[in-house]
């Protein structure tokens, strides 16, 4: 695949232009988040020493600096508090309508989670609507892996979608 104006990049992968997170465990210590996501689970880290639940997940407890953490499930259903709809001028990589909502998943620290809303036509969403986790595939990441050469790492990401009534 040609890169206009930069022929030396033909066929190469620039991570600095990748809109999706690097999810491979070789490059990311919170890789279980993405593995859980692939099973439809929305998870984060909880501190086993002080009990603090942090979102987004991390590798230390931000409250007590313990590294003794466990993965816990967050709710996958919530309610729309407020939302915005962008119909024209949607940025590269996203489709119109680009809908964002502050959603209440009912427990701390995700009482006010800001997320994209997918699978929803423009003008259809209302405040108070119920939404649920939506996991989707995003492009595989080509990663150099020693003698194995370049391997393709499968990736997913998430948004929320209206619950069908």
């Amino acid at each position: 695949m040609a890169v206009l104006g930069i022929p030396i990049l033909d066929g190469l992968y620039p991570v600095t232009m990748d809109m999706w997170p690097v999810q491979a465990k070789e490059f990311n210590r919170i890789w279980p988040f993405y593995e859980n996501l692939k099973q439809g689970r929305f998870t984060t880290t909880k501190c086993k020493d002080c009990g603090h639940v942090a979102y987004p997940p991390r590798v230390i407890c931000p409250a007590c600096y313990s590294e003794n953490l466990e993965w816990i499930d967050l709710p996958t259903k919530g309610k729309v508090i407020v939302f915005s709809e962008e119909v024209k001028g949607v940025p590269l990589g996203f489709e119109s309508p680009l809908i964002h909502a502050v959603i209440d998943l009912g427990v701390e620290p995700v009482r006010r989670l800001l997320s994209r809303i997918v699978n929803c036509p423009a003008g259809a969403l209302k405040r108070g609507d119920e939404v649920q986790l939506s996991v989707f595939k995003v492009p595989d990441m080509p990663m150099e892996k020693g003698k194995a050469g370049t391997v393709m790492v499968e990736r997913v990401f998430f948004a929320f979608e209206p619950v069908k009534k």
């Binding site: 809109m19 997170p21 915005s84 962008e86 940025p91 990589g93 964002h100 800001l114 997320s115 994209r116």
Partner: peptide, 10 residues
């Protein structure tokens, strides 16, 4: 990755 780069929606 939630499409929040450009600030108008926020």
């Amino acid at each position: 990755a939630q499409g929040l780069g450009l600030p108008p929606p926020f």
